[in-house]
Write a protein that binds this DNA or RNA. Sequence first.
DNA 1: TAGAAAAATTTACACTGGCAACATGAGGAG
DNA 2: CTCCTCATGTTGCCAGTGTAAATTTTTCTA
Lengths: 204, 204
Amino acid sequence: MLKENKKRYHHGDLKAALITAGLELLEEVGLDDLSLRAIAARVGVSHTAPKNHFGSLKGLLSTMAAEGFRRHAAEMKKGVEGTSPGKERLRAATAGYVRFAREHPSLFRLMFSPVLARDETDELAEAGASSYAVLQSVAAGLDWPRPKLTQPELQSWQNEMLLWTIVHGYASLLIEGRGPKKDDGTPLLDILEIMPDFDFVQSK
Amino acid sequence: MLKENKKRYHHGDLKAALITAGLELLEEVGLDDLSLRAIAARVGVSHTAPKNHFGSLKGLLSTMAAEGFRRHAAEMKKGVEGTSPGKERLRAATAGYVRFAREHPSLFRLMFSPVLARDETDELAEAGASSYAVLQSVAAGLDWPRPKLTQPELQSWQNEMLLWTIVHGYASLLIEGRGPKKDDGTPLLDILEIMPDFDFVQSK
DNA sequence: TAGAAAAATTTACACTGGCAACATGAGGAG
DNA sequence: CTCCTCATGTTGCCAGTGTAAATTTTTCTA
């Protein structure tokens, strides 16, 4: 192990350090006030150093968003493990989805930010897919209500998208601070309160 | 009618002109590339002129967002008028909600942007409420599925929030370009396809 | 060990939004 | 009609942003 306290010209693992510092600063100051120069300064490096590894600010943000999706997926998987298929698993996955958004609102917004949506990196697309896959697996065990039983079940992609729509809409409104609140300021709507608990959907 | 082509020191109706120009530019270049200076330049005025009317860029954006909510509400009302209560009205309102987001994605994002969420202007809060009120009135005529009929109906605020959650989640995912697409690139999921048409909810 | 490639720095540039000091002119009071 | 006030715009400036080009430093490889 080389001397660690002495400042070296080459950082050694600047790429990873920038991602970490970027994620930290993102949580501290929010997406709008996040600057490339501030991230570089936190790592103790000149403000143009990130260009070698990420090309531009957008490249760095894109990588950060990919890391966000991986953590997002992990947060959902963590709760899902050990649960039985059906409502319990649905509850765990949606809770993980919303919990992540609540605890990391800036990162969550970055992940779905239009700045990165268009020209996705392969890494970002892959990370996003891994997150979607968790919802996909959960949705497979569901049967949405069919008032007229003659109507066919939803197709699997409809199952997934409907689940995603609801949980994503809820998480979005939540972190935007919209919607009714209790007297103490906490959000009044808990999605668990109106979805699985209400038998809104049934497991097959 | 005073001379119109001659440049006057005092604009006359700068406030309204800035809002109009801001909304135009927003659609043209998107929220991230929208600059105060560009808006002022379009009106033919110095970049500090807006300060007299809006205080700061955030003030102008806030006013633009309020105008967005009013148009958003109008878009929903337009479709709702003349419909019978229940599913038809629900369909019209949600279609209006999504159509607005699809046709004005940048404005829609601005309206729900975290930059403005915190310290809302009275005008912004009021405009947002007028938009929410439309969903509120539509949701009043709904009965969400209750697999076990012994379970109580949703309370009115739950009705509204659940509807909002779904339609907002769908609109958000749509304009973010997420979700499955057809071969021609158009979005595969049409909310009308899986909600009212599927008898997902029933009118009372 | 030399020379090429990678990694960071320095410097410069075109932008941005906000501030302070000043210029203009519209409209009311006498 | 005149003066004078004050809202409305302008000019010049500042700190801060991301990006690009040229340069220095280090590491790696042949």
